[in-house]
Design a binder for these strands. Structure first.
Length: 636
RNA sequence: GCCAGCGUAGCUCAAUUGGCAGAGCAGCUGACUUGUAAUCAGCAGGUUAUCGGUUCAAGUCCGAUCGCUGGCUCCA
């Protein structure tokens, strides 16, 4: 007896020795067409799978996310079959479904070219048309190894050697056979909309000491429309690329002579940064932080004490010698904040300390990982360290998390996802401290009511942490904020405070960054807003456009008046047609264009054109200023 | 760092098989006197990323360096 759960919530009981195919036969045709595979007691299985008695079976339809994964995984197999046809000597590695598609890694006799992708796609089309069913067979470990060794599939052999006997399945479609857990599509015909997207190198098992394989990426959907809208999404993302917008809007640049991953903030980018920094400082002071400033270098003995020379050295720049002493450029701010703590003895009455700094750090990132503003070698963290007593710790965590959300919301982010990372195997700190800190983090997260995941063992060796991800206008996730406990440095620096009992106690130390780094956050903001910053952030908030040179004098009074009222205004007095100057201002994404001609000069008004709404007609300057100030205050 | 690709004027891109480095936009000069997304004309702009090599001849072929792009965890 098998229980079948239908999508509408109803259940049917089926008798006898059944497979998925028998079950399918009992369904109405419209539903039957939708089914891709099955879920037997929550485990995905092929449509042809036998149904053990006493199980509950549900249908996985095209619209289910699991179905898309199956489709992509099967498409990866179809691609591998095509590659094998074109390169019989190809060795197979792995080929899973991933977030936006799939890949398959191959060991090939020569590097692939983009033309090869076209040829592989053409071969895939044939395979789909030939409509091979995917059939499953289960082999013993011995049989599996014998088969793969005979085929020379060295990577698959390695995979099988790590598997347990009795769990080893192979899938066959046409002449192609591959080790695979499954499940798969009923047949190759189901793969209707796919595209190979790129070729990349990838180490076998991600290990740089192992062979470099060739990875082919692709994506697949159940229909053409979805495939096309995915490529539209990619185009949309390309339009928002902060590297492109950064150049077009004159926000930032890099320079070969200066070096990779080192950012030059141009005046317009600088204005935005200043607004962000001013807001950040004000909010920190309001929220009980004090601002500190620390140097860019410190003696190597500092980094020995902190432990960075042990666990972080590969990310630090080589030191320099000054008067016989070794100095290193800071990759983190924490040892300096600790030094402030240690500048005198501390009492339990003084705690907590919340010390914040926009601290510029330098980290050696491998050249291949650098990316615009998002991954750089020199950046400014919006860093802070909290030193507190154990009894204060839960409240401090609450406050940080609440503050963090408030800060991110001010920049227009509305969707958040939290990740709680717990104790890894190799770690320092007492069991009690880990448990108390992890509990405080969990409790703070739960108070927010936001969705979260627990990353078991994903914490740093020195403490548990919360990572917070934001969703941007395109639905992409970015990680900015992090809240981390540190049990390592208080120990290494022997941080203490005098307790009410007259004894020394170790404070809790919490690292936290809300925006992450100003560079990275700026990059995310550019992409989120597509360069069209809300008024409070816009580098140029208003541009005054005299219609004729004879209107220049009046335009100048408007311009001065705006600046005196704290508006970042510019005056475009160039001898160009008004349409031309409006076009330029529009392309520079300036929120307000103020057209002033003889009519306005007579009435003392301005003709307002808003970036998004267009021509708003004549406004008195007071009304305009009120509108702008309201918009700035609301951070819209 | 490794794999693959790329680097021509400020930007976007041309330049037959190796055979005189070009266009549009931006810039500058001048004319036009302009009312809500591009007025017209002229001028200037380059050691083809850098260094070396092959060749009668290199933007093009070879090597090195620098920089840029995509990828290198997501378990058959």
């Amino acid at each position: 007896m098998v229980k079948l759960k239908l999508p509408d919530g109803s259940e049917r009981v089926l008798e006898g020795d059944l497979t998925g195919k028998d079950l399918l036969a009992t369904l109405e045709p419209a539903l039957k067409k939708e089914v891709i595979c099955l879920s037997i007691d929550g485990e995905l299985a092929d449509l042809g799978a036998p149904l053990p008695a006493g199980t509950t079976v549900s249908l996985v339809r095209r619209t289910d996310p699991a179905a898309l994964e199956v489709l992509r995984h099967s498409t990866a197999h179809i691609m591998a079959q095509a590659v094998k046809r074109l390169f019989p000597e190809a060795k197979l590695a792995i080929g899973p479904a991933i977030e936006n598609g799939f890949y398959y890694d191959f060991d090939l006799p020569r590097p692939l070219t983009p033309e090869d992708l076209t040829a592989i796609e053409a071969e895939m089309k044939k395979i789909v048309k030939e409509d091979y069913p995917f059939t499953r067979e289960v082999l013993t470990k011995e049989e599996a190894l014998a088969r793969l060794k005979a085929e020379g599939e060295v990577y698959k052999v390695e995979l099988v050697e790590e598997l347990e006997d009795g769990t080893i399945s192979f899938y066959q479609q046409g002449e192609f056979n591959d080790l695979c857990r499954g499940p798969h599509l009923p047949s190759t015909r189901y793969a209707k909309a796919y595209k190979l997207t790129s070729i990349a190198g990838a180490y076998w098992r991600g290990d740089s000491s192992r062979p470099m394989l060739q990875r082919i990426y692709g994506t697949a959907f159940f229909n053409r429309e979805e495939l096309e809208s995915y490529f539209k999404f990619l185009e949309e993302a390309k339009k928002r690329d902060h590297r492109k917008l950064g150049r077009e809007l004159d926000l930032f640049s890099t320079d070969e002579q200066i070096g990779a991953g080192l950012i030059l903030w141009h005046p317009k980018g600088g204005r935005i940064r200043q607004v962000i920094e001013d807001f950040w400082r004000d909010e920190h002071v309001k929220n009980g932080y004090e601002l500190v400033y620390t140097p860019h270098l410190g003696r190597s003995v500092l980094w020995e004490t902190s432990g960075h020379l042990g666990f972080y050295q590969e990310n630090m720049y080589a030191g320099m010698e000054v008067e016989g002493q070794d100095y290193l450029i800071k990759p983190m701010n924490c040892p300096f904040h600790i030094a402030i703590y240690q500048s005198r003895s501390r009492s339990y009455r003084e705690l907590p300390f919340r010390w914040a700094e926009l601290g510029t750090v330098y980290r050696y990132e491998r050249s291949g990982v650098l990316h615009g503003l998002l991954r750089v070698r020199g950046f400014t963290q919006d860093d802070a360290h909290i030193f507190c007593r154990p009894d204060q710790m839960p409240e401090e965590i609450d406050r940080v998390l609440e503050f963090c959300l408030k800060m991110l919301k001010a920049f227009g982010f509305k969707e958040f996802k939290l990740y709680l990372a717990t104790r890894p195997e190799k770690s320092v700190g007492t069991e009690e401290r880990w448990a108390a800190a992890t509990e405080a983090l969990r409790a703070a997260i739960e108070k927010t009511g936001l969705p979260y995941e627990v990353d078991e063992g994903g914490g740093a060796f020195y403490g548990p942490k919360i990572d917070l991800k934001i969703k941007d206008a395109l639905g992409r996730e970015w990680q900015c904020s992090t809240i981390q406990f540190d049990f390592n440095e208080p120990e290494r620096f022997d941080l203490t405070y005098k307790g009410p009992d007259g004894h020394d106690h170790q404070p809790y130390m919490i690292h936290r960054a809300l925006l992450g780094s100003l560079e990275r956050f700026f990059g995310i903001l550019i992409e989120n807003y597509e360069g069209a910053f809300p008024l409070w952030l816009a580098p140029v908030q208003a541009i005054v456009l005299p219609v004729l040179p004879e209107n220049l004098e009046y335009a100048g009074t408007i311009y001065d008046w705006l600046r005196q009222n704290g508006i970042r205004a510019e005056l475009d007095s160039r001898n160009e047609k008004i349409g031309y100057r409006i076009r330029e201002a529009q392309m520079q994404k300036i929120p307000y264009m103020l057209v002033v001609g003889s009519k306005e000069a007579e009435t003392g008004q301005v003709a307002v054109r808003a970036r998004r709404e267009g021509d708003l007609g004549a406004w008195s300057r007071e009304d305009l200023l009120a509108r702008m100030q309201e918009e700035i205050a609301a951070k819209r």
